[in-house]
Write a protein that binds this DNA or RNA. Structure first.
Ligand code: MN
Ligand code: MN
Ligand code: ZN
Ligand code: ZN
Lengths: 143, 143
DNA sequence: CTTTATAGTGAAATTCAATTTCAAAATGAG
DNA sequence: CTCATTTTGAAATTGAATTTCACTATAAAG
């Protein structure tokens, strides 16, 4: 799946007449290897260890491109930082966010998505995307 | 219900040893009379017409107090502004947000809330609050 | 009706992540 | 290789949220 996302992004770059650069490849690799919901700052700091010359702005712009190309989703979990995760085509899940430790876990529920469609249909509304997040205490933080 | 919220807020003010001020009463009245999802800026500009001396910061701080007292909820619908709406005790609803005209409509669905509880229970997660928003085109914007 | 301690107000300053600007560097088509 | 175009990264800017601070208002006490 990492290979698939890499291809999707490279195709996107080609289609748009953009250029393939060393920085984009490095950022893409680091992003795909992570299984976290990374903020720009976090990914930038992580990269800086091995690649001190890559700038914050390049990480920022590249994550935006990932989202545009379809290999990433952008989130606001309310901690003041925009976060990104890589997702496979057609895949979808929502999140549980621990308000104490910040841990983020995932779930996917067909019944819930079906209800959303019903609600929208009832109001003649066409859904483009949605936000479904449960905030509270993860099991580890309940002690 | 406007009376009820006014009382709740005044009780809150009293309990916390805060003071009753002309500004807070004016802001409360304007807030309760509206049925919109107001940003700080919007409420501030609206108030300024009749009360030019009330400052933005006071509106900001007062809306925060409303939220703390339980008569208001705070939202981020992704347009870069924090929004507030007044809600009755125990009442709950979620939102449909039109990405074109910004219209916000509401819904409430017991089955959906029940599924949320199941999902959290399955992961041993304790929900404190949630975010459920459907983004897309309202019926008026589909032409 | 004072006095007085405490809270509130509003303008201005600050914060901070996001975004834009710009001059220099890199890419890749021809 | 050449050259038009894109990319990069540092620095500057933006904009909403938040804090600071000197002054004012509130209300409890006398
Ligand atoms: Mn996720
Ligand atoms: Mn609402
Ligand atoms: Zn936790
Ligand atoms: Zn609309």
């Amino acid at each position: 799946m990492k290979r698939a996302k890499t291809k999707i992004f490279h195709d996107f770059i080609a289609e748009r007449g953009l250029k393939s650069t060393r920085q984009r490849d490095i950022i893409l690799e680091a992003f795909l290897v992570s299984d976290r919901h990374l903020s720009i700052e976090e990914l930038y700091l992580h990269l800086r260890a091995a690649h001190p010359t890559i700038g914050y702005v390049t990480v920022y712009r590249t994550l935006k491109l990932f989202a545009e190309s379809g290999i990433a989703r952008e989130f606001q979990f309310g901690d003041g930082q925009t976060r990104y995760e890589h997702v496979a085509e057609g895949e979808h899940h929502d999140h549980l966010v621990c308000v104490r430790c910040g841990a983020i876990s995932e779930f996917s529920n067909a019944a819930m998505e079906a209800i959303q469609d019903e609600i929208a249909a009832a109001q003649g509304f066409i859904i483009q995307h949605h936000k479904m997040e449960l905030y509270g205490l993860c099991s580890a933080c309940q002690r």
